[in-house]
């Protein structure tokens, strides 16, 4: 069964326990941060699988603070998996999208970073400073969930913002909360975006205002799974190969009858640079 996490943005108090738990469980080094006025936790990087960032907006006189945890969304049909030509990313049946070199010790990744171009949420991060870098991102605590535990971040969350469970059940739960309480926006982020994701978000502030990717270039983000788009083109490859090959062979044979034979050795010669 496919797991998921429901993130209820209305409950988050910005304690950043999940960030700490994630670092501790995954044994990730800390990076020096700089204080800034907005108390932002910065961006994801190869040592940081998750961050909680602030979103401040105004509604009339009221200032609205919300805190949004960000990590890999664990897409149902991940673009990163489809992009990787060594198949180093896999969507497991449990729902986690894992990177084989670090999670399973299957080191095929060549470090081409096409997965980073492909991910619609800009999640995978590269160990730029290493001589032999890996790609890093949230593992959905695959090692924990395999043993029946919940993710480290969900376990650490004191407010119930992060709820770990079956994706189907969480989705039902999300809609129940939305329908029972008018404060929620009538949208579950991750239900349909890019074909759906294992992590789901609900909120009382419009998602765009929170910095979620809801619109690009003045149109809503696509609900098609990205791998299906690529496949629409890629599936023609064998046919083009055979068809184009047959056509070329036929044309060559046809025009050859009329062609005169050349002795190419007579036609060309080396250039004498001394001239």
């Amino acid at each position: 069964m496919s797991k998921g996490v429901l993130v209820d943005v209305t409950r988050c108090i910005d304690c950043k326990s999940c960030m700490v738990a994630c670092k501790v469980w995954n044994d990730l080094p800390s990076r020096k941060t700089e204080f800034s006025n907005d108390l932002d936790a910065g961006s994801l990087n190869s040592d940081t699988y998750t961050v909680v960032n602030n979103s401040i907006s105004e509604n009339g006189d009221e200032v609205i603070w919300r805190f949004v945890k960000r990590q890999c969304m664990h897409c149902l049909e991940p673009a990163c998996e489809s992009a990787c030509f060594t198949h180093s990313f896999v969507k497991t049946k449990e729902g986690a999208v894992i990177y084989k070199p670090t999670v399973l010790d299957q080191d095929y990744c060549v470090g081409c970073r096409y997965c980073m171009i492909a991910c619609p949420f800009d999640i995978p991060a590269f160990q730029w400073e290493k001589a032999f870098p890996y790609v890093e991102k949230c593992t959905f605590c695959y090692d924990r969930t395999q043993q029946g535990l919940q993710t480290a971040c969900a376990q650490a969350c004191p407010t119930g913002t992060l709820q770990f469970g079956e994706r189907e059940e969480l989705l039902a739960e999300a809609w129940q909360r939305i329908n029972n309480n008018p404060k929620y926006i009538k949208h579950v982020y991750g239900e349909k975006e890019y074909g759906g994701t294992s992590w789901l978000y609900i909120s009382d502030v419009p998602f765009a205002q929170l910095g979620f990717k809801t619109e690009v270039f003045n149109r809503p983000v696509t609900e098609k799974a990205i791998p299906s788009l690529t496949w629409q083109v890629l599936k023609w490859t064998p046919f083009i190969f055979v068809g184009w090959g047959a056509l070329l062979t036929a044309m060559r044979a046809y025009t050859k009858r009329r062609a005169t034979v050349h002795n190419e050795e007579e036609l060309y010669g080396p250039v004498d640079p001394k001239e």
């Binding site: 992009a83 030509f85 198949h87 095929y108 990744c109 060549v110 470090g111 870098p133 791998p227």
Partner: peptide, 24 residues
């Protein structure tokens, strides 16, 4: 030059991510 784990460059010959454009 550009691939980070260059000693793995031959891997795509053996581990087929054929759903990837890069594979082709």
């Amino acid at each position: 030059l550009d691939i980070g784990r260059w000693f793995n460059f031959w891997r795509p010959f053996f581990y087929w991510g054929f759903h990837s454009v890069l594979f082709e």
